[in-house]
Amino acid sequence: MAKKVKLPLSEETIAGLKAGDKLLLSGTFYAARDAAHRRMLADLEKGKPLPFDIRGETIYFMGPTPARPDRIIGSAGPTTSGRMDAYSPVLISAGLKAMIGKGKRNQTVKGVTKRHRAVYLGATGGAGALLSRSIQRAEVVAYPELGAEAILRLEVSDFPVVVINDIYGGDLYESAKLDYRLE
């Protein structure tokens, strides 16, 4: 059974998450991918504030297809998280508490995530049409000139994810593979 969880994630909620748990997220998170991450880090380096208060927040690694005129958003599935490994540690140190994407993270990110009691969650890649149904509001909050890579604030209801990396060092990709590995 999937656990219903409110966003932003509280310390207590995070403490209760274990790698492999299925969650349905409701509340608000931010969509950002490669170009937006590059811009956020450049802003921080220049001493500028981030375009939104990142403390306690969740970032979804995603760049949607354009919305049709009568729609909230287009297809909206996760992109590969590994490309954000270069940027995530700085954002986690600044207060980011959760990331949603697909694919494994490097040792540095996993270490920083655990140390700052943050989590990494997985969404089903290639299910962007299905996932878009859980998004109830979408607005551009920064870098509109980046088009599909602009930062969006998304309001979601029962958005399905799986916990990949928890605060106890659990890693679903490693443990689940061993459960089913025959060679």
Partner: peptide, 12 residues
């Protein structure tokens, strides 16, 4: 037989 499974969540 690698065990990776759908989306890497474990499986056949």
């Amino acid at each position: 037989r690698l065990g990776i499974g759908p989306m890497g969540y474990g499986g056949r």
